[in-house]
């Protein structure tokens, strides 16, 4: 799920950036620092959308670095248990398949793939129903349900399932 929230961060800035462009420098450093990172609480920071407020800088003794408390708006993405996500399959093997939804890595084990889908090996490994009508392979788009999440510093891992109504392939690259 996406959220638009306000976060706060203390930014350390080197003295060489002081001057007319201080604010711009601060903002670009902020974007570089936080976009693409994860926190367990908020999830993956997709983009900084605006600056709410920059507090008074505090000069550090000895180094000359200045710490600014910055409040910023950003879009974050965090998967929840029970959430339905659409994801792109990145790898299929006998254990199940891996899929990606943006920064989120999702694993759907073969325990959580409907029993009528069977693994087919070969140079394009896939899971196929016995009548061949549904096929999951690399680059397929699937709709899945999250049953477990874990957020690391840089990555989000999820366990997904497609063993439920209305889950499974939504767009098969082979038939397009």
């Amino acid at each position: 799920m996406f959220f638009h929230i306000v976060l706060e961060r203390n930014m350390q800035l080197h003295p060489r950036y002081f001057g007319r462009n201080l604010r711009d420098n601060l903002v670009s450093k902020l974007m570089k620092d936080v976009e693409g990172t994860c926190s367990g609480r908020h999830g993956f920071v997709v983009a900084v959308t605006g600056i709410e407020n920059i507090g008074k800088g505090l000069i550090r003794d000895g180094t000359g670095f200045v710490t600014f408390p910055v409040k910023y708006q950003c879009v974050v993405f965090r998967p929840f248990k029970g959430e339905i996500l659409e994801a792109v399959v990145t790898m299929v093997n006998k254990m199940g398949f891996f899929a990606e939804a943006g920064p989120v890595q999702i694993f759907v084990s073969n325990h959580l793939i409907p029993d009528d889908m069977e693994f087919q090996s070969g140079d394009m490994p896939n899971y196929t129903t016995s009548d061949g009508s549904v096929k999951i392979q690399k680059d397929s788009e699937v709709r899945l349900k999250i049953i477990g999440t874990r957020v690391d510093a840089t990555e989000i891992f999820c366990i997904g399932t497609i063993k439920d109504d209305f889950l499974g392939v939504i767009n098969d690259p082979a038939t397009v």
Partner: peptide
């Protein structure tokens, strides 16, 4: 996968089993 059970999604503590990092990180 990422310290969660691949079947029930429950968080597991302690690392057990054989790593299959060559297939996917965290498996």
């Amino acid at each position: 996968f990422g310290s969660m059970c691949i079947r029930c999604g429950q968080k597991l503590d302690g690392e057990s089993g054989v790593t299959f990092g060559y297939i996917h990180k965290g498996l």
